[in-house]
Structures are given as C-alpha cells and as structure tokens.
Design a protein around this nucleic acid. Structure first.
Lengths: 227, 227
DNA sequence: GTCTATAAATCGATAGAC
DNA sequence: GTCTATCGATTTATAGAC
C-alpha cells in the first residue's frame, strides 16, 4: 500500500532534520551536535524533535548510516565491472576521494576520531562495509581471471585476515592466498590514509598538486596488490 | 642562572594542568575539553588557570605540541642508524604504533578529525614533522647507500612533492627521483592509515592478530619503497 | 505532534578583593 | 596568583497544555 500523507510528511520532515544536522556538523563537529540547535534552525521547539529522534545519539547514528550509504553508493556507481582491473581501482578510489572532499565533515564523522561517549550500534556495519565490498570485488575479480601475478617468494602468514573479510575477495580460489588478502587490506587502509591525510591537513605544504599526487599514489597501490 | 623557586613551582603546576587536561581528553575528547573541568579536578578556581593558559585554545595547542614531541621522541629513540634499512623502518613503525596504542586519545588529537573552530598555530609544525623526518632519513640513507632498486619502467611525475618535503629525504641525489619521493609520501600516509584504522575501530572483525598484521603490512610498505 | 515552561546542569571569560 | 562572584550564554530531557 502507498504511504499515507501523514507518513510522507513525516519522512520529509525527517529529511529536513538530518539535513540541518549535517549543516550543524560542519560548524561544531560531531561532539558538538545538539538537538536544540537543529530545532532552532528549523524554527521548531526542541521538544518536538524527540518525536523523530529519541535522543541525540540516535540522530548521530542516522547521520553515520546515511553517510556510509552515500559514500558506498558513490563507490558502487563508479565501478564498471567490464573495465580493466587497474582502471576500476582508480575510478573507485577517485570516487571515494571526491565524495570525501565534497563532504569533509561527514567523512570525518565516519573515519575520523571516535565520538567520545558514543558507540555505533551494529546497524551501521552493513553500510560501513559497502566501499570495502566494492574494492574487494575488484581485486577478487582480477585474481579469478588470472590477472594477478604470483606472490612469488613472499612468505605466507596464514589466517591473518578473518573469514568474513576474506569473503569480500570472493570464495576460495588458488590465486587468492594470505599474501593477497594482507595486501588488499593494506591497500584499503592506505587509500583511507591518503584521503585522510589530505582532508585533515597533514599534506598541506608537502604536495604541490593533490589531484596528480592522489592518482599517482593510487597507481602505486594498484601495483602493490598486483592489479 | 638557575630557575627560581617560583619558576620551578610554576613549571610543576603547569605540568599538573596538562596532565589533568590529558585525562579529560580521554573522557570527553578535544572538542569537549574545558578549562573549568580541569580546574575542578585540580581543586582550583577556574579563573586561576587563566594565569597559566590565556585561553582554552592555548591549552589545546600545548597538548598538541606535547603530543607531537612525545611521539617524535619515541620514533627517534627507536631508530638505530647502524641497522639495515628494512629493520630501521620496521622498528620506527612499531614505535609509532606503540605510542599510538598507549595514548589513543592524544593520537586522535594529533591525527584524527580537526577540532571545530580551532586552527593549530605555526608553532606546532616543527614538532609535527619529527616522525616524518625520521622516516625520511631512513629512506634517504638507503637511497644514498645504493640500496634502493632502480625505479625501472615507472613513469616520472615531476615536482609533485614540495621542495621542503623532498629535503626530508636528503639533498639532491641521483637515486632519489620523483617516484621515490611519491612512494615515500604514500608509505608514510599508509603507516598512518594502518594505525588509524586499527585505533579507530575499522579493523575490528577483519584482522585476527593485529600485531602480526601490522608487521606484515609494514613489511609490504618497506618493499614498496624499495627498502 | 507541536507548543511553553522548567529542572538541573554545563561552559568561557572577566572583575575585583585579598 | 588564587579566590568569589558574576555575566550571558549553552545543553539534554521531561511534563503537561492544546
């Protein structure tokens, strides 16, 4: 059955609330996010917001899941499974960085310092995994198509990566060994480290052209995992 | 001339203030750091603190420089210039991670989300650079001793890294080209990304043994830069 | 479902006595 | 250099009228 007028109105107002909350996030950060300030911006009484979000933390959780979903969707949209692995890798990395630069405060909420006194509930996990799923599929596809070079000479270090995470690269396959899994996880951490360094200001006088630097760095990471 | 009793007493109390502030940092984060709470913990009137730190931001700046200095000292202590490059790299990376795990909230202050409304003054830059200086020297030493393999086949991408940062690897040397500089910067970003992922909880169900994972990942990074 | 009103706190920063 | 007192703000969350 179609949503009632009441339900649609409620969904609309909920969207307005989260939009205002995101604007506030940019000004005062996650730790300073306040229901009252959101209410003020919307011209409502603060108590009215409690009909939509039972507490400040619930609003925060919503912002986090929304953020992970938006970022995950951007990564998924950027991936063309028909393209060569290396191009897929670069395209997705660029999409992640673009989203991060367009939404720096949401990115900081997702990947920056943990918010003191707040613990993300389990509900956020599936959304949080979406980017890793995309990157894992690219590497897994390349491995299964035989595009990955042998991990010759590298010592194995078995069972470092959990089964759930290993599953992101696809099921069992002879070309996907422990070394590939380790490098895949390191590559994802490095993508994150590169973007965070840029966004959090640690690259400021160090790099002349951040776009070119990013592409170059992602190319090195692709080479690291063998794409 | 030796410090007067007055000066020594002042220095001692200043240290007590920053120690209390660090404890508070762990509870409420940088954004929630409050001079009043620090004063309360020390049994002083809040107004008395203003004789030591003219504002909340000055206290924050002190915590940041102290943190960078402690981390930098840990990295410097861990480096034995007589050891082989790969061992030096691993030892320093381990020291950085150890310090980060021992002081997670200070690490988050240094490398996590920027504090809203706060801009670090220039004074913090030298302290902030100390770790990068150590890592840069390791790579530079290896390059100058001819231990680095040729960047064969890699296309050059000139002038990506600023002159100041390039100087961390030592002056001009034929073995230190743009590709080496790019990979050095990427490696440092990746060390940071790996530690942050672990500390900020993004590796929680993904890695079974974080110590072994870290060593393995740092080994891959050493290989990336050619150590 | 929105409002007013309220409780019980918090904060940075300053003035002025001692 | 520490204190009390104060200004002028902030917050979460709830109670109860409409």
């Amino acid at each position: 059955m179609p949503p009632t007028v009441r339900e649609r109105f409620r969904a609309e107002l909920t969207a307005e609330i989260t939009a205002a909350a995101r604007r506030q996030l940019a000004e005062v950060g996650a730790a300073g996010l306040s229901l009252r300030a959101v209410a003020r911006e919307l011209g409502m009484a603060s108590s009215a917001l409690y009909r939509y979000f039972p507490s400040r933390d619930d609003l925060l959780t919503r912002l986090i899941t929304d953020g992970y979903d938006a970022l995950g969707a951007a990564a998924e949209d950027a991936d063309d499974p028909a393209a060569p692995p290396r191009e897929r890798w670069l395209a997705v990395c660029r999409a992640v960085r673009s989203w991060a630069r367009a939404h720096p405060h949401e990115y900081a909420l997702l990947y920056g310092s943990p918010v003191p006194g707040y613990a993300a509930p389990r509900d956020t996990v599936p959304a949080a995994a979406r980017v890793a799923v995309v990157l894992g599929r690219i590497i897994g596809d390349a491995a299964r198509s035989g595009a990955l070079p042998e991990s010759a000479g590298r010592e194995r270090d078995p069972d470092l990566v959990s089964d759930e995470t290993a599953a992101l690269l696809g099921g069992e396959h002879p070309a996907i060994d422990d070394a590939v899994r380790l490098r895949a996880l390191l590559a994802w951490s490095s993508v994150y480290g590169t973007i965070s360094f840029e966004l959090f200001g640690h690259l400021v006088g160090s790099v002349t052209d951040t776009d070119r630097y990013f592409d170059g760095a992602m190319g090195e990471l692709a080479a690291l995992v063998g794409l």
